[in-house]
Simulated assay, not measured.
Amino acid sequence: MYSTQGIEAIATVTELRSKTSALIDQAKTIKTGIMIQKNNEPEAVLLSYDLYLKLYKQLEKSSK
């Protein structure tokens, strides 16, 4: 089993295909993103754009 490391929601690739708009709306309302699973393994995380920018800025600061 893997750790979700703070992820609040999990969706499968199939759900992502069929419920993309709803998952994007949900990602905007949660602070940690939605883990996307493929074959019961974590593959990606769907984040709001605001959270992405925040994380990107933190990465830029730490790399200087």
Results as ranks from 00 to 15, higher is better:
residue 25 D to G: 07
residue 61 K to P: 00
residue 45 V to W: 04
residue 47 L to E: 04
residue 60 E to C: 07
residue 5 Q to G: 07
residue 3 S to A: 10
residue 35 M to W: 03
residue 54 K to L: 09
residue 11 A to T: 07
residue 37 Q to I: 03
residue 62 S to G: 06
residue 27 A to N: 08
residue 37 Q to A: 10
residue 61 K to R: 06
residue 41 E to S: 03
residue 46 L to H: 08
residue 51 L to Q: 04
residue 46 L to C: 11
residue 40 N to P: 00
residue 54 K to H: 08
residue 24 I to N: 08
residue 20 T to L: 15
residue 12 T to P: 04
residue 55 L to E: 08
residue 22 A to P: 01
residue 26 Q to L: 14
residue 3 S to R: 06
residue 34 I to Q: 04
residue 42 P to Y: 00
residue 33 G to R: 05
residue 50 D to G: 09
residue 15 E to M: 14
residue 44 A to Q: 07
residue 28 K to C: 14
residue 33 G to T: 12
residue 60 E to L: 12
residue 6 G to Q: 08
residue 26 Q to C: 13
residue 29 T to S: 15
residue 48 S to N: 03
residue 53 L to H: 03
residue 49 Y to K: 09
residue 39 N to D: 12
residue 34 I to W: 01
residue 59 L to C: 02
residue 15 E to V: 12
residue 32 T to A: 14
residue 46 L to R: 05
residue 21 S to L: 07
residue 40 N to T: 00
residue 23 L to Q: 13
residue 49 Y to V: 13
residue 57 K to R: 11
residue 53 L to S: 06
residue 37 Q to C: 13
residue 4 T to I: 09
residue 45 V to M: 07
residue 23 L to I: 15
residue 25 D to C: 11
residue 43 E to Y: 02
residue 58 Q to Y: 03
residue 15 E to C: 11
residue 53 L to G: 02
residue 24 I to F: 08
residue 10 I to W: 04
residue 62 S to E: 10
residue 2 Y to H: 12
residue 15 E to A: 15
residue 55 L to G: 04
residue 38 K to F: 08
residue 37 Q to Y: 05
residue 47 L to C: 04
residue 54 K to Y: 05
residue 20 T to A: 15
residue 10 I to H: 08
residue 34 I to N: 05
residue 55 L to C: 03
residue 14 T to E: 06
residue 1 M to P: 02
residue 64 K to Y: 05
residue 1 M to S: 09
residue 62 S to V: 06
residue 60 E to M: 08
residue 32 T to D: 10
residue 47 L to H: 03
residue 18 S to Y: 11
residue 53 L to Y: 03
residue 34 I to M: 08
residue 57 K to Q: 13
residue 37 Q to K: 03
residue 63 S to M: 03
residue 51 L to W: 00
residue 54 K to S: 13
residue 41 E to W: 00
residue 38 K to M: 10
residue 10 I to L: 12
residue 8 E to H: 05
residue 27 A to R: 05
residue 19 K to S: 06
residue 34 I to K: 01
residue 35 M to D: 06
residue 48 S to T: 10
residue 40 N to M: 04
residue 26 Q to V: 13
residue 18 S to D: 14
residue 6 G to W: 06
residue 25 D to I: 14
residue 15 E to I: 12
residue 27 A to V: 15
residue 47 L to R: 01
residue 46 L to G: 12
residue 35 M to F: 09
residue 5 Q to N: 13
residue 29 T to G: 12
residue 9 A to N: 00
residue 18 S to T: 15
residue 52 Y to A: 12
residue 25 D to T: 15
residue 53 L to W: 02
residue 41 E to G: 00
residue 48 S to A: 10
residue 30 I to K: 05
residue 37 Q to T: 11
residue 56 Y to A: 10
residue 3 S to K: 08
residue 1 M to A: 09
residue 11 A to M: 02
residue 17 R to N: 14
residue 41 E to N: 01
residue 59 L to K: 06
residue 26 Q to F: 13
residue 40 N to D: 07
residue 22 A to T: 15
residue 62 S to A: 11
residue 35 M to C: 15
residue 36 I to G: 11
residue 24 I to H: 06
residue 15 E to G: 10
residue 42 P to V: 04
residue 64 K to R: 07
residue 52 Y to Q: 06
residue 2 Y to M: 07
residue 17 R to C: 14
residue 33 G to L: 11
residue 2 Y to T: 10
residue 10 I to A: 10
residue 12 T to I: 11
residue 20 T to C: 15
residue 38 K to L: 09
residue 45 V to P: 02
residue 33 G to P: 08
